[in-house]
Write a protein that binds this DNA or RNA. Structure first.
Lengths: 165, 165
DNA sequence: ATAATGTCCTACTTAAATGCTCGGATAAAT
DNA sequence: ATTTATCCGAGCATTTAAGTAGGACATTAT
């Protein structure tokens, strides 16, 4: 089992998409700036998210990424899984062949733990996160800090209007 | 957050001690054989367990390790912690300074997850594991397979008798 | 057309950790 | 004195995370 910045980055980036839903495609450059994640690294993560059909992409200027499903339908567990960070606590992938073909002494304990974690992360959707107070607070701060050029150009507000329809 | 064979080995070894409590000191060679863990690696793990005062050691022939507290008083979480496998899911050690000094978008989510895992593993003691059916089954199988020389020598049964007093 | 802006893709690098092995020192029992 | 065990340190192969670098391709705006 393993949960590092990899999985955390993925969830954070997906939550960023959910927060800016309805504003058209969001570029990775925007996410990189807002969330403090390396652009190149984001590209690699989104390649996996796209292959798992959690996001869809639009290429070219004004392009970026959008959620491929309703926010309610995307769980944190799905996102973490998509970037290959299993929250599986057993070493045998639940096979029970941990100790040279046989079940090890603590196999069932780690199975129980895996169930706990998985059901917890499975029960939280991006929609659930979006409405949380602690998430809103941080999102507001980030928007205030990075809103400098959002409504500066005519094309940008035009795009936002189009997307809002 | 990370849970690999390191933490699983530690819990398995501690459970082995709990299962053979009352039989005097248990050597790492015995645990190595029963649980299929490298002896040298066990030594390293038990060095940490000893420094965390979870076990006490007896040197010399007939020596080995014993639990330093009642089985009921040792939780799985303590054992995992002792070998430096934190089940902490945040990257900021709960400080909230995840994103260049400020709180990141998903900080509270990972805090919640950490609480879940920690309270789960904290609520399970070695005593709880010893009485579980799945644990008993595996333990019986292991005892049957590795009991060949336990009661063969006079010194061994003598030692067991002494320890039982 | 062409320049700019984005995704897409591959390969490389650095650092850290895991899971071991090996060699030897020390303590205690036979 | 020899055996049995814990102790202790160094070292090593492998994997992974996390990020860099460079470029190809698609799309929009000039």
């Amino acid at each position: 089992m393993r949960l590092t910045t990899k999985g955390r980055y993925a969830v954070t980036a997906m939550l960023d998409l959910a927060l800016h839903e309805g504003q058209g495609p969001i570029s990775l450059a925007d996410i990189s700036e807002r969330q403090g994640i390396s652009l190149s690294y984001l590209e690699q993560l989104f390649a996996k998210l796209r292959r798992n059909e959690l996001v869809k992409s639009v290429r070219g200027p004004g392009g970026g990424y959008q959620l491929n499903h309703e926010k309610q339908a995307i769980s944190v567990a799905q996102v973490v899984d998509a970037v290959n960070e299993s929250v599986e606590a057993t070493g045998c992938a639940r096979q029970g062949d941990c100790q040279s073909g046989e079940t090890c002494l603590t196999h069932h304990l780690w199975c129980d733990l895996s169930n706990q974690i998985h059901s917890f992360l499975n029960g939280i959707s991006l929609a659930d996160l979006v409405v949380r107070k602690d998430v809103k607070d941080v999102a507001d701060r980030q928007d205030r800090r990075h809103s400098s050029q959002v409504f500066l150009t005519a094309t940008d507000s035009l795009r936002a209007d189009k997307a809002a329809v």
